[in-house]
Write a protein that binds this DNA or RNA. Structure first.
Lengths: 239, 239
DNA sequence: TGGAAAAAGTGATGGAAATCACTTTCTAAA
DNA sequence: TTTAGAAAGTGATTTCCATCACTTTTTCCA
């Protein structure tokens, strides 16, 4: 079913209405605290789109007019520096949202969003969202909350880029992964090592070498391409 | 006049009531769009404090319970990395505010705030602020706006740390200063070179050398300790 | 206003990691 | 299943900049 949106969207397709919109609205922290009838109202404003792996959802410089919520798949958010180098800012998965920077600011995207696999997103336009924010102040507070976390993460990352060596940044990243995949000593890297190198502000070669080094030193074991088993948690924390 | 607050505040002093509170509320972008009677209401919730140069306003790990607005002076916000190195995140001047990260998040400060000179701040407690946010949704939208800018700045900075060399980062910083002090080719650095080195993720020695290098190459001229005259704008942009 | 402390400047040195060049392994699409 | 093309691994080399050690200048406050 082709969608009936105005803009060029031969590449994305509106999906089966209500069930999907409901899942979007009710699965995301900024809306799921609302009353049912309020969520229903928001659902009506939501449109769905699908992107194939590799497709660009928006580019820096694009006019921004929507909030995007990930319903399925993964999105890579990255920036290009003045000198043209790519840097991955974050990876969005189920329930994460983006587009908001430009929604409140000058309405021009500063970053790129690319589907890392086949991905479904829900969209709410800027004007619809602004209406909801004024009507339901608690949504703003939820978004403020989310922004705070992100701001903290961004500042923390910036600080680590200039104050920690690559080994330490990698160790910190691995420990963070552990926290998310609680209990188990094993997990899968959430992105390719190439992407990881960009995310951590280094190069693929260095990631290769440093991971091998951590393995040699007995801190971790690499399993297949993306698997990591942590053998010495305390050790990692002390790097 | 000593203030009557509960916490240890022998070092700060409540200042002369109404006029100062008014200036705080009406000078800051997140409130100054409100109706007069709404601002009056907020003013009642505002308390003022003064800090002497060098005093710490809050530390990482402190419980956060207030929004701070700068009414006079300058505040240096910095973080300590895991390995204990200091990194300056931003400098607050008249009308800027801080404390908000912790206000919406876990209520623990992640950074340090230090008065760079004798500084007056206005404070609003978390609970008062939350009330205003629910009552006047437009305040949230203003803060969202501010957060967006900061988030963009933080991500941009993080990206530049890992994708640009020090020369480039310095050049970018100088150009940014130019933008703020529009029209003139001369301006004062907003912080010491030591602080600048921390802000740009490098060392004082490197800042010294690179600035000297930019001067030798004819891009700029250094005037006294903090003055910079830009001689070749286009050149700087191409570094 | 003099003097101590902090900031800034400068030279020499070392080291972490980028870069380059190439091989090997993986992956996904025909 | 085959096979191009991407990702990952590895060694050699280079480069940028942190670090160390010291001098000079500035700041500020007793």
């Amino acid at each position: 079913m082709q969608c009936n949106c105005k803009h060029n969207c031969n590449h994305h397709v509106c999906s089966d209405e209500n069930t999907s919109h409901r899942s979007c609205v009710s699965s995301v922290s900024i809306f799921n605290h609302l009353e049912d009838h309020q969520m229903d109202e928001i659902m009506k404003a939501v449109k769905s789109f699908s992107y194939k792996k590799g497709e660009i959802i928006y580019s820096a410089g694009d006019q921004s007019n929507s909030l995007y919520i990930v319903r399925r798949g993964k999105i890579r958010i990255y920036r290009l520096s003045e000198s043209g180098k790519e840097q991955i800012v974050r990876i969005l998965t189920l329930g994460d949202f983006t587009g908001e920077l430009a929604l409140f600011k000058e309405s021009i995207h500063e970053s790129f969003a690319e589907a890392m696999e086949d991905t479904d997103v829900c969209m709410i336009t800027r004007s619809d969202l602004q209406g909801f924010l004024l009507r339901y102040p608690s949504i703003s507070i939820k978004i403020l909350n989310e922004f705070s976390k992100r701001l903290d993460a961004a500042e923390k990352q910036a600080t680590s880029f200039v104050t920690e060596k690559v080994d330490k940044r990698i160790a910190m990243f691995l420990l963070e992964c552990m926290d998310n995949h609680k209990e188990s000593m094993e997990f899968e890297l959430p992105m390719s090592k190439k992407d990881l190198s960009s995310y951590l502000g280094t190069t693929p070669e260095t990631i290769s070498r440093k991971l091998a080094q951590l393995e040699d030193a007995g801190y971790i074991r690499q399993i297949a391409s993306r698997g990591i088993e942590v053998l010495d948690l305390e050790g990692l924390q002390l790097i």
